[in-house]
Amino acid sequence: MEDKTLSSVYPSLYEFPMTITMFVCMVIPAWFIIHRWNQRNEKGPKTWPLLGASIEQFLNYDRMHDWLVEYFSVTKTVKVPMPFTSYTYIADPANVEHVLKTNFANYPKGETYHSYMEVLLGDGIFNSDGEHWRRQRKTASLEFASRNLKEFSTIVFREYALKLSSILGQASLDNKEVDMQELLMRLTLDSICKVGFGVEIGTLAPHLPNNSFAKSFDTAQIIVTLRFINPLWRIKKFFNVGSEALLDQSIKTIDDFTYSVIRKRKAEIKEARATNENDNKLDATQQPQLSHGLST
Rank of each mutant, 00 (worst) to 15 (best):
A91K: 06
K176M: 09
V178P: 06
F126A: 15
V99T: 11
A205W: 03
D174M: 09
V78W: 03
G202E: 13
L226E: 15
Y259Q: 13
V74P: 00
E56V: 04
W67V: 04
E118K: 15
P17R: 10
F16P: 01
F217A: 13
I55H: 07
M117H: 12
L100A: 02
I235K: 00
N148G: 09
T19M: 07
A105K: 10
D218R: 12
H65M: 10
Q170A: 13
L247R: 11
N240S: 13
R40N: 02
L59F: 12
E244V: 02
F72D: 01
P93C: 08
T102P: 01
D174I: 02
I34H: 10
I201C: 04
E118F: 13
S115H: 11
M26S: 13
E177W: 09
K43L: 15
V74S: 10
Q249G: 06
F23H: 03
L246K: 15
K163I: 00
Q57H: 04
F239A: 02
I125P: 03
N240R: 13
D248L: 09
R134T: 08
A53R: 00
P83V: 02
R40M: 06
G44R: 05
T77Q: 11
S291N: 12
A214Q: 07
V99M: 08
P81C: 03
N95C: 14
T75A: 07
L149D: 08
W31T: 11
F213P: 00
T102S: 05
K43A: 07
H292V: 06
Y61F: 14
Y89S: 07
P17G: 04
K215F: 08
Q249T: 15
S212Q: 12
P83H: 02
V261W: 04
I269G: 04
L51D: 00
S260W: 00
S295F: 05
I269Q: 13
T154R: 10
T112C: 06
I34M: 09
W37C: 08
L282W: 04
L294T: 09
K163W: 02
A272N: 12
K109W: 04
N276G: 08
D92R: 05
V119I: 15
A220P: 02
N95R: 09
N106M: 07
V99A: 06
S12L: 13
E159P: 00
A214D: 03
P49S: 02
K43D: 07
T203Q: 01
Q286C: 02
R36G: 05
G242V: 00
N210W: 07
H132S: 14
P93T: 10
E97Q: 14
F152Y: 15
V178Y: 05
L168H: 07
I155F: 12
A105E: 14
R134A: 08
A53F: 01
T47K: 00
S115Y: 06
E97R: 14
R137G: 02
K79T: 15
L51T: 00
A171K: 01
L226G: 02
D283H: 09
Y71A: 01
T19C: 05
Q221M: 11
I34R: 13
T21I: 14
P17I: 07
F152L: 07
E177R: 14
M180V: 15
P83N: 04
L232K: 05
E70V: 00
V78S: 04
L184S: 09
E70P: 01
L121D: 05
T253W: 00
Q57G: 10
G122D: 03
I269W: 11
H292G: 03
R134S: 05
K236M: 08
A274C: 06
V27I: 13
H114M: 09
K215Y: 09
